[in-house]
Amino acid sequence: MTATPMVLSEGVHKSFGSLEVLKGIDLAVQPGEVCCLLGPSGSGKSTFLRCINHLEKINAGRLSVDGQLVGYRQQGDKLYELREKETAAARADIGMVFQRFNLFPHMTALGNVMEAPQKVKGLSKAEARDRGRALLERVGLSDKVDAYPAQLSGGQQQRVAIARALAMQPKLMLFDEPTSALDPELVGEVLDVMRGLAADGMTMVVVTHEMMFAKDVGDTAVFMDGGVVVERGNPREVLTNPQQERTRAFLGKVL
């Protein structure tokens, strides 16, 4: 018997109006696995990531996280959408890091990290503060706890965003091109934090164009194009010896 996959996607379809963006995604991510999602712009990577925590509703197929359907309850052959509260509770266990950081600009770094544990999980202020300080230290920002996002560099903001997601003690972390909005010299500091997370055994789904990161840290690489998974496997295999023509074409452009 194998363990329950952390993410299990079976035939997931998603359309925006008449535009079908996901055309049946089949994918399993095991606990502790670092899964790197690669693919050209517009291939549906962000959309798939957002479906995993129900920021987008799927139109067909099944998506479950840690054995629980995302956003729905199955009864017979029908899926009933969950109430907002239930969806919110499920999301609290899934951390998400955005390309554009999306820190709360009216709160300090520590305030950003303390917000959800305090207001969603009901931690006391002291507990939330202790947890927040520890996490900011972990991402190397213990001297920036009282800084507002506008006073931080992009790399520092993204590290705060990672700490903010970790503060909810998620079982799964989703990263949507976390280094794409950064100046090249700031990419390393963010990737280092993610590398540390992977080493600690966090399950991660990472949309990235950082091929070195995918090779070094990824357990699997998944190549998406046109709303389907074209190829998946060991990152070294997929990146150095792709089996599919579309993967080869894409890698030829980015490498």
Binding site: N53, L55, E84, K85, A88, A89, A90, R91, A92, D93, I94, G95, M96, F98, R100, N102, L103, F104, E115, A116, K119, V120, A161, R164, A165, M168
Partner: peptide, 16 residues
């Protein structure tokens, strides 16, 4: 809009 998304991703309700 990213602000609402980030808040929702943290499990915050619409009201919160």
């Amino acid at each position: 809009e990213g602000q609402t998304e980030a808040a929702q991703a943290l499990g915050m309700s619409r009201g919160l």
